[in-house]
């Protein structure tokens, strides 16, 4: 899919002002998570992108993040997260060439809102990454965890984009249920379950889980607020 059409408006990926009702409405969730600039143009069967689309060397790969609401799995949050992981793993496993996995990550990196300055606070910094990654989390009124992330590395942004696609809007229990080894086949450069400062998947996922856990604890204590 070599797209050329440009969509200039970018729908905010993450907004604390979105109503819980809107977030939880059954089939709209995935659709909302796809920025306008990446939505599929079904009529033309083309992908509208604001960046150059990367050819995938003839491999037909299901693009997990590009799914429309109609293609979305069942609405139950638990199934959503598990299914998304499967889709993502399938997608990256299908990319035989390492460079294609890099390209795919860059493709997804473009989905993160640019220069999300509020997320680049020192308290939001993910410890243990070789690049700088910032993650923020908060719990909405429906008890779902909303994530926002940024990085100074495009490839790390791609990791963040995928993780947010999987976990944003999920319930805390579902976020915490994800195992780092679930993502081992999605890795680029660092293989398997390696716990390393260069394993961005691992480190960002763990940071998201820590924040989710902290939000749960806060809510239990009757304190509702933002965890940074």
């Amino acid at each position: 899919m070599n797209a050329t059409a440009i969509t200039t408006t970018t729908q905010p990926h993450f907004s604390s002002s979105r109503s819980a009702a809107a977030e939880s409405s059954s089939n709209s969730q995935l659709h909302n998570l796809i920025p306008a600039k990446l939505k599929l143009d079904k009529q033309n069967n083309r992908c509208s992108l604001s960046v150059k689309c990367i050819p995938n060397r003839g491999i037909r790969i299901p693009s997990a993040l590009a799914l429309t609401a109609a293609e979305a799995p069942p609405s139950k949050a638990t199934e959503m997260v598990a299914d998304k992981i499967k889709r993502l793993v399938l997608e990256f496993k299908s990319l035989a060439e390492p460079i294609d996995r890099v390209k795919r990550l860059l493709h997804y990196a473009a989905r993160l809102p640019p220069d999300n300055v509020s997320a680049r606070e020192p308290e939001s910094r993910v410890q243990g990454c070789s690049t700088q990654v910032w993650v923020e989390a908060e719990m909405d009124e429906a008890g779902r965890i909303r994530f926002r992330a940024d990085s100074d590395s495009e490839i790390s942004k791609g990791f963040c984009s995928c993780l947010i696609w999987m976990l944003d809007g999920a319930e805390a229990g579902d976020v915490l249920a994800v195992e780092t080894h679930d993502l081992q086949d999605v890795n680029v450069g660092v293989y398997g379950k390696v716990n390393s400062r260069v394993n961005t998947w691992h480190n960002v996922l763990l940071a998201m889980q820590r924040k989710a856990q902290a939000l749960v604890t806060e809510r239990k204590q009757g304190i509702r607020g933002t965890c940074q």
Binding site: P98, I99, R101, V102, S130, T131, D152, S153, E154, I155, S156, V188, G189, V198
Partner: peptide
Amino acid sequence: IHPTDLATFLDQQ
């Protein structure tokens, strides 16, 4: 270009 992005591409490609 982030140096880690450079290093990743140099390795992978």
